[in-house]
Nucleic acid binder design. Structure first.
Lengths: 190, 190, 190, 190
DNA sequence: ACCTTCGGGACTCCCCGTTTCT
DNA sequence: AGAAACGGGGAGTCCCGAAGGT
């Protein structure tokens, strides 16, 4: 199957971009990680690196969206746990070194790459939208859904950065607990 | 004024790294932004780009720390506003494109640059420590100080990324409001 | 003809290294001399300058070996003339400025480049071995073959240096005459 | 004594140039080897690297000349042994890695540095002249003095190169024995 | 039609030999 | 004598077209 080669490249790119940003991710590394020959790049990605980057962002954005959409939680808390839990896995497995490719692109994108930033924005918005919908569906007060969803995504991305620095999951767990406090629940405890 | 040249370079580097990450920040750009001549690099930063990067991280880490330390808030909410407000300024001024150099380094650092990541960790910790101290001094329940401080830093860094994508302050304001909810206050309102 | 480009580069490098040593030979000059674009280097010589240097040394070592092997002399004196004559041509043509790339590498090689020096040693040895064989085949006393061969190579390399300084062939001719005296011949004349 | 610092620099330069050629010898290394501060260079050597190189060549040339002049040999063979013996010491001590600074300059000098090459020529000639005089004074046939002197210097310089490659004195010893055969002596033995 | 070798410039970082001001 | 600052290349290599092999 010829598609396999391209897929491996995109997957490798997504992983590398999450770990070190776009600029620090060279074609050479992507090729090495995916085992593809050098000349194949412009066959699969005629527009070069930008196209590979776009594909990588779309891959992880879509993957996260799909996985969260399949969440069958019945409470806001369940929705939150589902979202955080998905990321927690990779942080634990990589001792914090794995990151989010969408954030990786957001961070080292210059103003002249507007279309790439547009894609990043769309990705984040799709997550926020889905989370807000799921919060609403599980009974969260209408006016709270979007703010909490935004805080969730922001908290997650920020926590991923702290996890890299700390080389562990601790910050993500702390942030997750605080995010949970934004949801109605077992009454006030502070 | 001999000191001036180096300072300008570090300042420019910090700004550029915040905006596009380390790898995407070339010496050439730093030089252009600071108006320095090429040969000065090797003199001021014998260890090259890593040293410039370290100095840039330390500059912003120290700057943020100093500015936050000078905050004269008397309530946890005041502490939070002080911290967020400091970042809000630059986000507004740059329409979201300015970012945090510490995060910029964290994102595109490979595992072999352990010392750089150590510096990043130390920077984040210094912020968390200071915030926790200030929360405690303004009456926040002891057990809540550190978790809230961690959430604050994570929320800020994540919000900065969302602000880049959205090209505006909206996400930061949303996150700030949610962080405020983690503090004891005017009773429950949801 | 795809092979041509690489060959031209190696040939240019060999010539330049012979004339000014390795360190003084920049890639830029090699490229200019061979008419190749800069990007071709990484493709043809993935290990960079060391690889180009190795190839250059092997080129001249092999060339000299082949040319000397094709010598059809029937006396030791004929063998010597053949070897010296081959070098004499280039010295005359360049007014002494052309040198031996093998010596060029030998001279500016630091101790940490052991493998390069190994190649140089192998090259010199191959010349000495061939000369010794040819001396033996043309009737030189067995015990004299290797010493005379070593003296021939040393005398040649030293003479090339003197020719550079004198900007002419005179030293080489003098050395050639003296080397001839090491061979049995027309009786003693001093 | 201020002279001391300059002397140490010239001495270090001579040694380094002999070991790796001129281009591969950086001011930084010379400074490190001589323990001098960077800013002193242009105080001692207003014309920069060329002047340092010239001084290094003159130091070596003068040193060799003086030492050979002090040789009290009474036979041509004694003169030869004196000259070779002086170099043999440093080759043995350095396992072949030490070389001759004059040759080092000769090898990586480009045609545009005519004056440096002039100095090299003068140095070699001074050695040849002295040797020829000494050979004459010890009874060598007049017509043989200069050719043998030239062969001696050429053989020495070539042998030094071979010694580098072989990492030992063997080639120099072989060459010395052959040079001795150019002198009248115990009758023919081949 | 699919893929890959081969080749092409444009940087990036490094560092080197200098000059100027103390 | 020396600290500070200066430009100019050096190698490396990155991201990419264009022509050929299967």
């Amino acid at each position: 199957v010829p598609r396999d080669s391209k897929d491996r490249m995109v997957r490798s790119a997504a992983s590398l971009i999450g770990s070190r940003g776009v600029s620090a991710t060279s074609f050479t590394e992507v090729l090495a990680a995916s085992g593809s020959p050098r000349g194949s790049i412009y066959y699969h990605f005629p527009s070069g690196k930008e196209q590979l980057t776009r594909d990588a962002v779309q891959l992880v954005a879509g993957h996260v969206l799909a996985r969260q959409a399949s969440c069958r939680a019945t409470t806001p808390r369940g929705v939150l746990d589902c979202f955080i839990g998905m990321w927690r896995e990779v942080v634990v497995a990589s001792h914090g070194s794995a990151g989010c490719a969408v954030a990786g692109v957001a961070v080292d994108t210059t103003p002249d790459q507007a279309d790439l930033l547009d894609l990043v924005r769309a990705s984040f918005r799709s997550w926020v939208d889905l989370l807000a919908d799921q919060f609403a569906a599980t009974g969260l007060h209408a006016g709270r859904c979007r703010p909490v969803a935004v805080a969730t995504v922001a908290g997650l991305e920020g926590a991923l950065i702290l996890c890299r620095a700390e080389r562990g999951v601790a910050p993500l767990d702390t942030v997750a607990r605080e995010l949970a406090r934004l949801l109605p629940g077992r009454g006030r405890e502070d």
